[in-house]
């Protein structure tokens, strides 16, 4: 087996989990690689830092708001003491920096990534999704970006209530009145900044697809899932893989037309009239990506192989009716470990 070292972010396996732990489990399951996992953490209480059976070593990294140069400097240091072959970033908010740094990482540090282009990343942004759907022939509920809560009172000429108030990176609230929309606007804007996206609410069943594109227009793999148990943050606590050919077709069309490079998650609503509306494209693997592994498609392993320059044959099948059921688990951690990551920035 080939020895490689993969750095992964998103170790926050909390109630609104980052995808890191699922991605790590998937890569660890590889029969092709003998993997050393380097965790990249933002906060000292991210559970993955202390999961030593999954993460060999963790380094704290600067928040995305610190900028590219600071990140590059930190990654250069980490790479000098702990060689990294591939980095898989798993947060929307950090992707801009990693995409901008991808060429430098490859040329200066010989670190591979497998990320969408900046143009692909920006085009699918919530703010642009309506136009994106039109361009790629996929229905998207009417959406509008607003910068001021006073714009909400004028929305009734374009939208009908209920509507969805969304943050530019995270959070979404269904509002049934202008008052509720204003409350949601203020709350989400305070947390994630502006703009806020207003989207027409579509009634139906929410389904999600985790997928991987090769950047040449090919769909390498896709597994659709229906959430079965949803937390109060709207996150899937359990879900089941489903057999829905149209979801695969939509994903394949999107990959062909956008030439998406890397992992992504599609959030789609299927109405009672069997219409499919794209709600969001998350530009990285979802936290439930390990379900794809359980269904026979190891997307993170395939991504690592492509990042290392291998050609991959697309997955053609997956198991239907496989469930994932998330669980909470209390780890006991020695204060020394917490102290080490908090003061030295590595563990």
């Amino acid at each position: 087996m080939k020895k490689i070292s993969v750095a992964v972010t998103g170790l926050n396996a909390i109630d609104s989990p980052g995808p890191g732990i699922s991605v790590i489990r998937a890569i660890r399951q590889s029969n092709l690689f003998d993997v050393r996992i380097i965790g990249l953490a933002y906060e000292s209480l991210e559970p993955g830092i202390y999961m030593h059976d999954l993460v060999d070593k963790t380094y704290q990294v600067p928040l995305p708001s610190a900028g590219m140069e600071v990140l590059l400097s930190r990654l250069s240091y980490i790479n000098s003491v702990d060689k990294i072959d591939v980095i898989i970033p798993n947060f929307d908010a950090e992707l801009f920096n990693y995409i901008k740094l991808a060429d430098i990482l490859k040329q200066q540090l010989q670190i591979s990534t497998f990320l969408p282009t900046l143009q692909q990343f920006e085009a699918r942004h919530k703010v642009n999704l309506y136009e994106y759907g039109e361009e790629h022939g996929i229905k998207v509920p009417k959406s509008k970006a607003i910068f001021n809560s006073q714009e909400i009172v004028r929305l009734h000429s374009e939208f009908t209530y209920p509507l969805v108030v969304k943050g530019k990176f995270y959070d979404a609230v269904i509002a049934y009145s202008a008052d509720q929309a204003t409350g949601a606007f203020n709350k989400i804007a305070a947390k994630w900044g502006l703009p806020i996206i207003i989207q027409q609410f579509v009634q139906g069943q929410e389904v999600n697809v985790t997928a991987l594109g090769d950047g040449k227009g090919n769909l390498i793999g896709a597994v659709p899932m229906r959430k079965q148990y949803i937390t109060d943050k709207g996150k899937a606590w359990s879900g089941i893989s489903i057999d829905d050919e149209e979801l695969i077709n939509i994903t394949r069309r999107l990959m062909a037309s956008s030439k998406w490079k890397g992992g992504l998650e599609l959030e789609i609503v299927k109405t009672d009239e069997e219409e499919y509306y794209l709600l969001e494209i998350n530009p990285r693997f979802p936290a439930w990506v390990y379900l794809a592994v359980g269904c026979g498609q190891n997307h993170p392993e395939a991504l690592v192989r492509m990042a290392l320059g291998e050609d991959i044959k697309p997955f053609n099948t997956y198991d239907v009716g496989k469930l994932f059921i998330r669980y909470a688990y209390d780890m006991i951690v020695d204060l020394k470990e917490f102290e080490k990551i908090s003061t030295l920035g590595e563990l």
Binding site: Q205, R226, Q228, D243, D244, V320, G321
Partner: peptide, 11 residues
């Protein structure tokens, strides 16, 4: 045989 019915198209 136990009476469990599964619709794979929607889970």
């Amino acid at each position: 045989d136990t009476g469990f019915v599964f619709d794979p198209s929607n889970g």
